[in-house]
Each structure stands twice: as C-alpha cells, then as structure tokens.
Design a protein around this nucleic acid. Structure first.
Lengths: 340, 340
DNA sequence: CATTTTCTGAGGTGCGCACATCAAAAAGGT
DNA sequence: ACCTTTTTGATGTGCGCACCTCAGAAAATG
C-alpha cells in the first residue's frame, strides 16, 4: 500500500498542514521539524500523489502555440497534431490553442507576446525566427510568469526557455551524408533550395550540409542556395533557370519545411535520369513522392512528438517538475521508401 | 469554466450518483433518465475529469515486463528505461516491474503466465517468441482480466493484444535498401548474422532484406544466415570461417538485437577495405562503432518509446480508453553517424 | 402489499489552502 | 526592572477539488 501525507504526518508527529508545507517547501516550519518530516517521508518511501495534488489545486493548463500565418502541409500537420492532443489530454485539464502570426514581422510578434496575460495563458510555444525584439519580449514573459519554449524554429533564449526541435546543423549534415552516399562517384552539381536564407534554421542546415559534402564528397559541388520566398511563380522561375544554366545537376536538397512547391517543380523540370533528391519533413505530398520513388530520402522530425513534447515541457515547468529529458529529445529521422 | 458532474446533475434534475452511473454506463437507470443526463452532458459540453475519477477510484496500475533472461546491452537499455518510467510515472500511480524468463522455454513462460494474479497485476508486456503454449496462456490471461501486449518480439495474438514494436519485414527491407545504396556496383557477397533463425522476428527481417536486395541489387548475393546462439566461441568460429571461405564479402548485416558480440568479431576479422556493415539497435557499443565510422548504419527502435508505449497502451486498456494511435506507432529509425 | 427497479444521500479518495490558534519573542509604557 | 501589548513564527483545523461507492429510501411494477 502506498503511504499518504497522513501517514507521514503521523510518523513525524506533526499535522497534515506541516507536511504540506514541507512538501511544497513553503516557509514557516522549523529546521528540525522539516528534518523530522523528511525523515518520515524517506522511511515510508512516500511519493506524493500528483493526481490528487493537481485536483486539489484546481490546476488546469492553457497553452498557446504561436505558428506562422503562412505555411502548407507541414504546418497543417502540426495543427492537427495539436487538435489531437486537445482530445487526448482533455481529461488531464490541458488545453492548447493555436494563434497564427506573421513570422516575418518581429514587431507584431513582440506586441502579441507583450499582450499575453498571465491569467489566461500558462505557457507558450513560439515558432518564429530569432530577433532581438522577440527575445526581449520572451524575457519579459518569463518575468510575468509565463513559460515559453522555442518551437522548431529559433533557438534557446535563456535557461528558462527550452528548444523543441532538431539540431539543424546535424540535420543538414545528415542530408549531406545521404546525398554523398546515394550519389555515384561522378562529378556533379547539387542544387540547394530554401524558402529563405534569412532564417537561422535554414542557415544551419545549409552549413551542416556544405561542411560534410565539401569534406567527404569533393566531386560534388554545392551551388548557391535558391530562395523561393514561398512564392509559386518565383520558385518555378529560379528552379527552371538553374536547371537550364547548369548542365549536370546530380543532386537536389530542399531544406525548407514546406517541400511541396519546389518539389513539384523539380520533378517537372528533370528529364531522364533524375538527380538524387532529398527533402525535409513528412507531409502527404513528400510521403507520396517517397513511396513512388520520386525522391530518395526525407529528413524529418515527428510533428506529433514535437507538439506533445512542447506540451509536456510547459506542463512540467508549471508544476516545477523535472522532465524526462530522454523523452523530449527530438530525433532527426531518416525516411526512405522502406521505413515510411 | 469547465462543467462538473454536479452541474450535469442539476441540469438533468437527478443526483450525482445517477450521473455517475450514466457516465460509467452501469445498470439501474431508466432509459429516459439516461437520455436526460446525456442531453445535459451534451448541452454543457461536459468532459469528465479523469484525474479526479482515478483518485476517487483509488486506481493504481501495476504492470509487469517479462523479458528474456539472456541479453546484453539492448536489454539493459530497456530495463533502465523501465526504471526511468517508474520514476516519471510514480506520481500517476503506475508501477512497472521486470521479470526475467527463459525465452526459449515456452513451457516455463506459459507457467509463469498461468500463475499471474489478477489482484496483483493489471497488465503484462511480454517479450517472448511465439509458440502455441504462450498464445494459449495469453488468451487465458485475457479471460482473467489481465491485459497483455506483445513486446518487441512475437506478434499480435488477438484483438485484445497489441504489438509494441517495429514491422520487422520492413526493417529488414530498410536494411536491404541501405546495403544496396551504400555498396558500389561491383559484385559481392553479403553476410547475414543472427542469434537464431528460430525467432519470427529474425525470419521476417531476413525475408524483407532478401526480397529487396535480390530484386533491386542483383550484383549482391546474400549468403545463408549464420547463427551465433549468443555464444561467444561459436560466434567467433562461424564468422571467421565465413570470412575465410568467401573471398569478397562486401556487406555484413547483423539482424539480432544484440549486435556487440558479432560486431566485435566482424570488425576484428576484416582487413583492408571493410565491407558495408549494418546492424540493429542503438547500444553504447553500436553507437560508438557508428560514431567512429566502423559501421555504416543502424536500424533502431527507441527503447524509451517502446517502454512508454507499452505502459500507455496497458493503462488505456485498463481505463477502457482509446489510445492516440499515432503516438504508439513505433518508428523504424535509421541512424548514421550524423543523426546519432 | 411485496418485489423489483430506480434513485438519493452521505461518506470516502489524497491533497492544497485559507484561516485559526497559540506560544514565544519583541516592543512599548511606567 | 516589571508588566502589558503587539508582532512574529510555527503548527493545527476544516473545507474544497471532482468524482466514486454503497446502503438504503423512494418509486414503479405486479
């Protein structure tokens, strides 16, 4: 049988209230009675029943995901995972909402963060590029008692702020390794396509990719990044131009999260003997492309894991609890047609 | 504000106890009052607070992992993940113990399963090869109200019995694809090393591997499986003999979960120009080998995920709750030195 | 009127929290 | 220095959280 606070109280010769004070280390207990209680806790092997504690506290958790306003299938996937979590965690008093923000407007983001109310929101998962304004706004949120995690994009701002996402430098290197091993020994050029190179994650992926390919596969020459700005026409233009002006493109690396647009155009632009194609993130489109062998590999992070991890971290922080860090590490997954 | 059973009771004009009976669909409520209560529930958008329900029920979850008695680092990893879960879930009244069984003795396993007491154990995660005895024993467990999941090994016995683990046929195919793409075009032989080919998982991996390699990489010829029986001397003997008698071994696929022993010997037996080596599972040893580029890839399943998934499934079944199936699908992960 | 069915009431579950209590220490007055 | 008043520190009391359970009352049924 599990021991309860009552048992501890009896064993220590104090009342429930004192045990409670020790457990939640509140002031107003003499040092030696704290020791007595702690000894009793240890002797009985007492673990407080979190379920009961949360009930008594009337605790509930309202979290908010700030996601970019623009986006395609990857973003949709995230949003539906969040909806799933709302169902799965409804019984545990967790509710997660989504707000869309203009990711390219740090001023607006900072405003939104500044208006966040401690009474209404317990924690925030922010998917937005780094910027001084945003970082300052985050710091002020922490002061006001609202926890934040950086979600997928951006990076850790302080020790109050975890990063939920993959190591993008390593992700780029992983793509680079696969590009090298999947290519044959013949010299060739590698096209790198990004939505924008202003985001830190894109830069890191590119860097990891370049370092590895240049070091280990010198016969491949990596071309300057093409930026699509998420615009259909521009994407088509820059990719077609590249294919036209470069003779032997043996590889294509699409490093943005939303691969559909560039992928469609690359697949349309290649004639016989398509290049090795590596993209990021699993979406209905990329999954189909992988399955039909139109692309060679995907470097992914599990959106469900991302969402749940952000929620678990925020919840643990509100409870002042430790997290199981091995569970929260987001893996860089490699998907090929066989393990999809 | 969330509505409670009390609100529902008032709205439906009945007492709390009646609401409770409707919620847990117990007998003794007239049809029309059931309807009244359900309407009230719908109108108020009531969701029962699982936390409070579990507290009131005094519910606790005692689960047991039956793991093989023999094993090396992979098994150690599993056990320490289980220990982690015990800490992490202690506040939620779940406790998981480990029993070691002789996996090759179905009779003993069946005995152990038969002696399982419904009062003491709520659910079982069984890592043991398929056999008629074990399957029957499992079926009887279900009748006695003890839920089971097949863990890593074996397969689904009934619809009462989930399988927690990867699709081993696909895992073998994944290994095959990587073997093919990582090898050059020259003809060569591929060594396949298993602990035993009597286990269903080994057979499936081998089958998936063979099908893919034979179809897509005909220049590679896959040799008959070497069986180590987990024995150090035998392992050394069969592997050295193979290397001696076959001239051009260009690939090695180690398909057992415990790769250390065969890997050590393979690494010692190869001279210049080592073959492409692919193994299963991440352990301290295989991780180090990957990092030092002594092997090329690992096909893994996350032990932490496996353990937590088994626990979540067993818990959901005891609560008669749905699981979030997307969370419980165990991924076939590909590890290379860059995404470790 | 005796059953059977349906429903209510009150008392748990482990814990948190606001408030009450009570002794000891500090401050103030003579 | 002595006594009274106020403050502080340390501990206990009791109710509430949202739900479950079970004995027994009320209502329906024959």
């Amino acid at each position: 049988m599990r021991s309860t606070t009552k048992d501890v109280a009896v064993a220590a010769g104090v009342s429930l209230a004192t045990v409670d004070r020790v457990l939640n280390d509140r002031a107003g207990v003499r040092h030696d009675t704290v020791d007595r209680v702690n000894k009793a806790i240890e002797k009985l092997g007492f673990t407080r029943n979190l379920v009961a504690a949360n009930l008594a506290r009337g605790k509930s958790y309202r979290f908010l995901f700030l996601l970019p306003r623009t986006g395609d299938q990857f973003l949709e996937g995230l949003i539906s995972r969040i909806a799933e979590c709302n169902v799965a965690f409804a019984g545990e008093m967790v509710q997660a909402d989504v707000w869309r923000i203009h990711e390219s407007d740090p001023h607006q983001i900072a405003n939104v963060l500044g208006a966040m109310d401690h009474e209404q929101i317990d924690g925030l998962a922010i998917m937005a590029p780094e910027s001084p304004q945003v970082r300052d706004a985050k710091a002020r949120l922490v002061e006001r008692g609202i926890d934040t995690v950086s979600f997928i994009a951006g990076q850790i701002t302080s020790d109050q702020d975890d990063f939920v996402g993959i190591d993008n430098h390593a992700a780029g290197a992983t793509a680079g390794r696969l590009m090298g091993r999947f290519s044959d020994r013949a010299p060739g050029k590698v096209l790198v396509i990004a939505e924008t190179m202003h985001a830190r994650d894109s830069l890191e992926r590119r860097l990891g990719f370049d370092e590895l390919v240049n070091a280990d596969y010198p016969h491949l020459s990596v071309l300057p990044s093409l930026e699509t700005y998420g615009d259909s026409e521009r994407t088509e233009r820059v990719i077609r131009t590249s294919f036209a002006s470069h003779g032997n493109i043996s590889g294509v690396y699409i490093l943005s999260s939303e691969a559909r647009l560039p992928l469609e155009i690359v697949l349309g632009a290649t004639t016989s003997g398509r290049p090795v194609i590596i993209a990021h993130e699993r979406t209905p489109f990329t999954e189909a492309a992988l399955q039909s062998r139109q692309i060679d590999a995907l470097i992914t992070q599990d959106p469900g894991h991302l969402v749940r991890s952000a929620i678990r971290i925020l919840r643990a922080r509100k409870d002042r609890r430790e997290i199981l860090s091995s569970q929260e590490k987001i893996r860089i997954e490699i998907l090929i047609s066989e393990n999809i």
